[in-house]
């Protein structure tokens, strides 16, 4: 990703594309898009990544996380859902050059989090997925699954606690 950002390297872009475009497409299909729309939107997301590459800050987010935020915003447009304003930039002045140690920390945290997500118990995992992909609020998940809202809240909390624990 840094090579895409700093060198406008299309070979590096192609490698990112090969890894992430199928994932973005899968995410959009799970969110309710048909295959054709999901294909188009996945290409849009990767094109946006190329255009906005200079905004990528490896001390703040992993590549997967950054791509998720672009894909999420594209999904909101695609489903013609509600606008989602972003917070303003922090008034901290110009950012210093990212230190390699922070980049490494972020990568390690992302890897631990991915591992923790992959090993969540199935009932917690499926609720997290519905919360992110199903476009449902907790109350709507309750209606859909027939589970009491309290159960959903406590399972989601358990899942998040596990994820938090993994980040420590």
């Amino acid at each position: 990703m840094v090579r895409v950002r700093d060198n406008r390297d299309k070979v590096a872009f192609a490698a990112l594309f090969t890894h992430f475009a199928p994932r973005i497409k899968g995410y959009l299909i799970k969110s309710g898009a048909d295959a054709t729309t999901a294909e188009e939107c996945a290409q849009d997301v990767m094109t946006t990544l190329w255009r906005k590459a200079e905004q990528f800050d490896p001390t703040r987010a992993s590549v997967a996380t950054w791509i998720f935020t672009i894909a999420r915003n594209r999904r909101i447009d695609m489903l013609r859902r509600d606008r989602r304003p972003e917070p303003e930039d922090l008034p901290w002045g110009p950012e210093p050059e990212p230190e390699q140690i922070h980049v490494l920390e972020m990568q390690q945290e992302a890897a631990r989090l991915a591992q923790a997500v992959a090993t969540l118990p199935p009932n917690q995992r499926s609720l997290i997925e519905q919360a992110y992909f199903g476009d449902l609020t907790q109350a709507q998940i309750a209606k859909e699954t027939g589970l009491p809202l309290g159960t959903i809240k406590s399972r989601l909390r358990l899942a998040l606690d596990r994820l938090r624990h993994a980040m420590k």
Binding site: K30, A35, A38, A64, T69, R72, I128, E129
Partner: peptide, 12 residues
């Protein structure tokens, strides 16, 4: 970041 981790497991 949770969204990023979930994205890693998808594929189409």
């Amino acid at each position: 970041a949770v969204g990023g981790a979930l994205l890693e497991d998808e594929s189409a």
